[in-house]
Write a protein that binds this DNA or RNA. Structure first.
Length: 457
RNA sequence: GCCUCAGUAGCUCAGUUGGUUAGAGCACAUGACUGUUAAUCAUGGGGUCCUAGGUUCGAGUCCUAGUUGGGGCGCCA
């Protein structure tokens, strides 16, 4: 039975002097006259293992010394402690067998590559330190999110991925159809698969609300699709979102939940990915660990939209877009605000005209109980609101915004039957990973990113 | 969608005012080396200078179009 390198790091003393069988990929191979060193990675951990091999032990020494980065090998050897060396232990090989060769044109070399080059080799880039670390953290963050909610008795809801309603008024959607578009002359949606026009989901929120009004506390966690022609470091056409929804709760409960969740995720990544975090801190964003520790130990700031605009107006900064009461924040405004507050900041009480129909109208009749959490680098990390639970208010907003409500009858039923105040938010998984790792491009935290004009792999 | 920058060896890049045979580091190949760890040292091979067209005695360099990628902004939970 083969051993994983992670086990060797976890129980080094137990393996001292023992024979182990390892399978993995060569990261680097340095040979000398009578002996050589292989840096082996088997994917079980960020760390590599140094394997020492000697000509007097291996009968295939010459061949092994020629193996290049990328080769997969099987190694039978003995673990020895090396307390005086750079690495705590190494494996002295008894036998090394080549399993899969790697020709000299293997794109991943033991050197620095540009992110752009690695994006074009998305199938191989995960073999580098950076992407190995990013995608292990992505897995750990995903698990942390489930742990956080499950520990709090939240129900995990699988919202549908295909939906007919575009009630949210969100942007462009990917259409789903089985019509033979190459031949159909006039499109008749009643002849389409669902008998009506359907799209990939842009949000699971409305469905989550239905389940929150039965389970009290729920969350969704799944892929989301946006067909916007957005070309930025923060936007992808396919990404993952987490959308908790809590009943008998208001906007303050909502913000508290978001803050607790984000801190929980950060702590869990610190606990489970210390090597990865060290790597990010050293090579991706200097001071990352300190920044996140500070976030863990401080209360998130809160400012109303009006206060935020005032701060911008009084800043003396010349913005390309003039900050204005009642209007949305531009990217440069968000950046200024996160710098001003020196950490995550909730912007609350947004003008109703620039927010969605389902957000609860405040008593001033001008603003809604919405909150956006802004963080440096990842921009809008969380967006949420208390939902409008009052039927008459909801119907008025639907009318004001000219939304077709024929698909919303079931959503309104949630108010008609046992309605209650409730709230929720959406967290962009990729933006969370960007924030935690310091990686500043969303295309580098998605395994095979989809963006406009790019659906390779 | 708008603006902007770039494309030179497998990778990262340099390339002067338009001038003779286009360079470096890493990688690769061969060799040296009894503890390397982004090993080191020596030698060597490796180029459709993104594509097409144009200006010129002469284009990697200048012009036009296309294409691919980066960045900024917008759109956007």
């Amino acid at each position: 039975m083969d051993t994983r390198i992670k086990q060797l790091y976890q129980k080094t003393q137990e393996y001292d002097g023992k024979t182990v069988l390892l399978k993995g990929w060569i990261r680097n191979n340095r040979d000398q006259k009578e002996f050589g060193f292989i840096d082996l990675n088997d994917g079980s951990t960020f760390e590599t293992l140094q394997v020492v091999y000697e000509s007097k032990v291996l009968d295939n020494y010459k061949e092994i010394s020629k193996l290049r980065a990328g080769c997969s090998v099987e190694i039978n050897g003995t673990l020895v402690l090396t307390p005086n060396s750079k690495q705590p232990f190494e494996v002295k090989a008894n036998t090394i067998t080549l399993l899969g060769d790697s020709p000299e044109d293997y794109p991943i070399q033991p050197k620095r590559h540009s992110r752009e080059f690695l994006r074009e080799n998305a199938h191989l880039r995960v073999r580098t330190n950076l992407f190995n670390a990013v995608f292990r953290v992505r897995s750990v963050v995903s698990h942390a999110i489930h742990k956080f909610f499950q520990d709090r008795n939240f129900i995990y809801v699988h919202a549908p991925i295909i939906a007919a309603s575009d009630a949210e008024g969100a942007g462009e959607m990917f259409q789903v159809t089985t019509l033979d578009l190459d031949h159909v002359k006039e499109i008749d949606y009643s002849q389409d698969f669902f008998g009506k026009k359907s799209n990939l989901s842009v949000s699971g929120q409305l469905h989550a609300e239905a389940y929150a009004l039965a389970f009290h506390d729920v969350y969704t966690f799944g892929p989301t699709f946006r067909a916007e022609n957005s070309n930025t470091k923060l936007h992808a056409s396919e990404f993952w979102m987490i959308e908790p929804e809590i009943a008998f709760a208001d906007i303050n409960d909502d913000m508290q939940l978001a803050e607790d969740m984000i801190k929980y995720i950060i702590q869990d990544v610190f606990d489970r990915c210390p090597s990865e975090m060290q790597f990010f801190d050293q090579f991706v964003e200097k001071g990352l660990i300190q920044k996140l520790k500070k976030v863990l130990n401080s209360k998130f700031k809160v400012a109303t939209h009006k206060e935020a605009i005032d701060i911008l107006l009084q800043s003396g900064t010349k913005f390309e877009n003039l900050p204005k009461h009642g209007e949305d924040l531009a990217t440069e405004h968000e950046k200024y605000l996160t710098k001003h507050f020196d950490g995550p900041v909730f912007i609350i009480d947004w003008p109703k005209d620039i927010k969605a129909f389902y957000m609860r109208l405040n008593d001033d009749n001008e603003t809604v109980a919405a909150m956006d959490l802004l963080v440096p680098q990842a921009g809008e990390l969380v967006g949420g609101s208390q939902r409008e639970e009052r039927m008459d208010y909801l119907e008025r907003r639907i009318q004001e915004l000219g939304i077709s409500d024929k698909d919303l009858w079931w959503y309104k039923d949630l108010r008609k039957y046992g309605g209650c105040k409730h709230a929720g938010f959406g967290l962009g998984l990729e933006r969370m990973i960007m924030y935690v790792t310091g990686v500043d491009n969303i295309r580098d935290v998605l395994p095979f990113p989809r963006t406009p004009k790019n659906c390779d792999f």
